[in-house]
Computed example of a mutant assay.
Amino acid sequence: MSVMERLNQDLKQAMKDKAAIKLSVIRMVKAAIKNEEINKGSLLSEDEELSILTRELKQRRESLQEFEKAGREDLAEKIREEIIVLTSYMPAQLSEDEIRQIATEVISQVGASSKKEMGKVMGAMMPKVKGKADGNLVQKVVSELLPS
């Protein structure tokens, strides 16, 4: 089942359950996907839909940090609930050990031997973990594995 199909089903259920935050988040994601489809001129692939979800999740996490810094617990709590809803549409996340294993393989494939080649490693690594791992964690692991 595609992300859009799942969103449509969950939208109906959220309306029946009167789940305001879930309803709001689903509508926002559907609108973002529709806008992207209009800009592209065709339907989006699963990967493109996943990219939109990832982008929305990243925005929420950044907002959460800002609200927590500002001491706005009321807004932070709402964002936490939105993050939970968005996370439910994401694929299972890779553990740090799994990321480390993939990074080791990629480093040997691209022949990277220092941190100067981190961009090359990250470029090859991100498509393999797209939507399954946080970019900051991937960067941290790759940085640890590459010698200075």
Rank of each mutant, 00 (worst) to 15 (best):
M1A: 12
M1S: 15
V3Q: 01
M4D: 01
E5A: 13
E5S: 13
D10F: 01
L11S: 02
A14I: 00
A14Q: 00
M15I: 13
M15S: 08
K16W: 04
D17Q: 13
K18R: 13
K18T: 04
A20V: 13
K22M: 06
L23M: 14
L23T: 02
L23P: 01
S24I: 03
I26C: 00
I26W: 02
M28D: 15
V29Q: 00
K30F: 03
K30S: 11
I33L: 10
K34W: 07
E37R: 08
E37W: 07
E37T: 07
I38Q: 11
I38E: 13
K40M: 08
G41F: 07
L43H: 13
L43M: 12
L43I: 11
L44V: 08
S45L: 07
E46A: 14
D47Q: 14
E48C: 03
E49A: 03
E49K: 10
E49R: 09
L50P: 03
L50S: 11
L50C: 08
S51R: 09
S51E: 15
S51F: 06
I52K: 06
T54C: 07
E56V: 04
E56A: 08
L57G: 03
L57N: 05
K58A: 15
K58Y: 06
R60L: 13
R61D: 06
R61I: 04
S63I: 02
S63K: 12
S63N: 14
L64P: 01
E66P: 04
E66Y: 09
E68L: 14
A70K: 13
A70C: 02
A70V: 03
G71A: 08
E73L: 09
E77H: 05
E77A: 10
K78V: 14
E81K: 14
E81R: 11
E82P: 02
I83T: 06
V85M: 06
L86C: 07
S88H: 10
M90G: 04
Q93S: 11
S95A: 02
E96T: 15
E96M: 05
D97M: 09
D97Q: 14
E98G: 09
I99P: 04
R100L: 07
Q101L: 12
I102N: 01
A103M: 11
A103W: 07
T104S: 11
T104G: 10
T104R: 12
T104F: 10
V106L: 11
I107P: 03
S108G: 04
Q109D: 15
G111R: 13
G111V: 11
A112I: 10
S113I: 09
S114Q: 07
S114E: 10
S114A: 13
K115P: 03
K115S: 14
K116A: 15
E117G: 06
E117T: 06
E117M: 08
M122L: 15
M122H: 06
M125D: 00
P127E: 05
K128N: 03
K128V: 04
V129N: 00
K132N: 00
A133L: 01
N136I: 04
V138F: 00
K140D: 10
V141E: 01
V142H: 02
V142F: 00
E144Y: 05
S148H: 08
